[in-house]
């Protein structure tokens, strides 16, 4: 088997890792890189627990051949905090009660982050579309939607003040 060394930027830092030619990225993250924050809820693109950002776009890492990550920039839940400070999404998820069992939460936050990184004034429809591939069985989504809206508000305020949140 032709294993390959792939290199990419992971949460802002360069990483190289040897992978099998058809290894899926979720397994590389969880098993080879010990980044277990990214969850595996179904392994078939049907729940979104494994969502990561590749060049800023939300994807299911369970359907992503690791080879395809070569040369890209990847963000996972472990990279959302900024210098040890919670991202507004993380704060809002906690304060608005959008977290219950927590298994969908990392993927949910990554999908929401992909949205807010591009659009700090999303409509309710845009928010729901952004997380439509993330199944949450605990919350009924109500507080998740509120939390994302709340985080967007925080980010807009920060933008006015000139602060940055990656």
């Amino acid at each position: 088997m032709n294993t390959k060394l792939i290199s990419f930027v992971l949460n802002g830092e360069p990483v190289s890792v040897r992978v099998d030619p058809f290894e899926l990225f979720v397994d590389v993250l969880r098993e080879k890189l010990q980044l277990t924050g990214t969850k595996k809820g179904c392994g078939e693109g049907g729940c979104g627990s494994c969502t990561v950002l590749i060049n800023g776009e939300a994807v299911n890492s369970c359907l992503l051949p690791a080879m395809r990550v070569e040369g890209t920039s990847i963000q996972t839940i472990e990279g959302v905090e900024d210098n040890g400070e919670l991202h507004p999404l993380q704060t809002s998820f906690i304060e608005k009660g959008a977290v219950q069992c927590g298994f969908c939460t990392p993927g949910m936050i990554m999908s929401a982050k992909a949205l807010l990184d591009k659009n700090k004034s999303p409509s309710k429809e845009e928010i729901l579309e952004a997380v439509s591939g993330n199944i949450c069985r605990c919350t009924g989504y109500v507080k998740i939607e509120e939390a994302i809206e709340d985080a967007a508000k925080t980010l807009r305020k920060a933008a006015v003040k000139g602060e940055s949140h990656g």
């Binding site: 693109g45 979104g48 939300a58 994807v59 359907l63 439509s132 591939g133 993330n134």
Partner: peptide
């Protein structure tokens, strides 16, 4: 099609 994550790929 699918979800946003799937449409992105």
């Amino acid at each position: 099609v699918g979800s946003l994550q799937i449409r992105n790929v």
